[in-house]
Design a protein around this nucleic acid. Sequence first.
DNA 1: CTGAAAGCGCTTACAG
DNA 2: CTGAAAGCGCTTACAG
Lengths: 336, 336
Amino acid sequence: MTRKSQGIREVAAEAGVSVTTVSHALSGHGVVSGETRQRVQAAADRLGYAPNRIARALRSSRSNVLAFVGEELATSPSAGPVLAGAQAAAAELGFMIMIVNAQHGVIDGPQVEALLAQQVDATIFVAASHRAIDLPGRLDTGRTVLVGAWDPARGIPAIVPDEVAIGRLATEHLLRAGHRDIVHLTVDDGMPASVGRAEGFCAAMGDAGRHPRVFRVPGPADARAGAAAMRAARAADTAPDAVFAFDDVMAMGVYQEAGALVQSRLSVVGAGDLRPVAESLRPALTSVALPWAEMGRRAVAIAVGMPVPDAVGESIARLPGVLVERASVRSRAATT
Amino acid sequence: MTRKSQGIREVAAEAGVSVTTVSHALSGHGVVSGETRQRVQAAADRLGYAPNRIARALRSSRSNVLAFVGEELATSPSAGPVLAGAQAAAAELGFMIMIVNAQHGVIDGPQVEALLAQQVDATIFVAASHRAIDLPGRLDTGRTVLVGAWDPARGIPAIVPDEVAIGRLATEHLLRAGHRDIVHLTVDDGMPASVGRAEGFCAAMGDAGRHPRVFRVPGPADARAGAAAMRAARAADTAPDAVFAFDDVMAMGVYQEAGALVQSRLSVVGAGDLRPVAESLRPALTSVALPWAEMGRRAVAIAVGMPVPDAVGESIARLPGVLVERASVRSRAATT
DNA sequence: CTGAAAGCGCTTACAG
DNA sequence: CTGAAAGCGCTTACAG
């Protein structure tokens, strides 16, 4: 299996040049004649040679590995998609990803030390929920990027979903379908997701000249909350013809509370694009997908391109969501 | 931030010993007097020294990093939990985890090469669905363990869920609750999960002296399939008093098809413990959780303890699931 | 354009 | 028990 260690020396011998030249030719860093480069490449191919990344890292002090510190890797819906996006981007750039899990929001000290001892080139911290955080000092190396969170106290580059745009997107989709009496069902937890989406909803309704009606219930944003909010909306109101729920799980509560209506004439859109839920509901739920994979990709791009410590400027990038249309929005003759 | 590189030399100077002694003292590999060890330790602590893992890896040719190759990291429900379990176990053992994603079941060649060039000590391959696979040759290094899959052609250690035990567990729970007319709703895809769980169901029913009735519909195992199977069961049969659905999503279909019954007197148990679904349903769904985190832990234990290539013996470990009780199983007077 | 030499930060025989 | 020396496999000034 493991071929008898083919090192740079064997390649040099095979190509009839020095190891220095092999290094130059293969890394593209030195200046080598085209002819030599080809001979070296051919020799390397023949031997199946790939430079030892450990040796390279030790010598050059660039490991080409990125640390991925994820909160609640096991259960957070964002963890997998962000990680997959980051991994893909890293692969394209020749980087590997090393992970550590932050259970219950706390990062194991020894794990962080190990990461640093591993000489990672930068670290990506991924929050389980969109919020402000206080990054542990040891991680604040000047080569860190935050995903799904930001650190108000430090100038760390962050990349988060554009919650306002997400609320707008959902609402405008409903408006385009001809709905006018649209309510927004959400939770009063004061988090960026709920306040941002509500804000986007209100803005879109305002632009359309409609009065935005928002029904907030106490969190957490589960099916029970969705049902409760729907109940409140029906009690307070002439029947709405569409609802924008804070997320897919709350939308599921809407189905439970008003199943017959949803079957017949109430349109609903959720957010989060939680596949097993959105696809299983009937009618299948239209939802705004959060840009998790893209967030992962961007995080890697920033991390890799990051100049040396303290040259980074503070900045928060907000990424839009994307609408995933399924069957829960019926179009309806516009009546104003 | 980054302290001016505190190396083993600085520690040696601080402790007034040689670097050799520092290495011996800190690694625990050499024989050092207790007094010396303490002096070294104190010096290391004072300087905040942690050995450079890259240098250590290069010299000792043990990187203390494990490769985690996961299929469909973004969407597989098992990926997160397995990864979290593996990460926790690795941390305890002083190992780090490096990940690569296998999109659509294919592993990027360059990525695998990079993994090997990274000198990972072993690799853990995690399948998105329980099945037989054919591990890419380059990964078959003699230091690989499979999770959620096995390779019939090679003697690679594998660890999978015990589907039969899972079927048994769900069924026996229903039997213990006093149910007798229990049906199993599943899919005819011939995969280990569906055939194993059905087998466990039949065995448990047999033990209880009941005739096992299994309704199979064409896959995939989505809510539509669950509803169809439920429809078939009701058509074929006097009404069952309980159903064991292949998984939580099919169970959701049962709720959709027979909502009133589920509210009033039909007990149901699912499998997979898909949180957003199981917790959102009403009544909340009792489900058998798959042992994903434990599978991850075990995989790491095997990987770390793995002797040198070709000393490994073929073996498949099957782990039981655990019942997560919620509200969908009512107990009922036993009537035989 | 090419190569001899030093060295990244450790660990590991090997002597003492 | 302790330490001087070699060396892991590369890259990187530096000469030629």
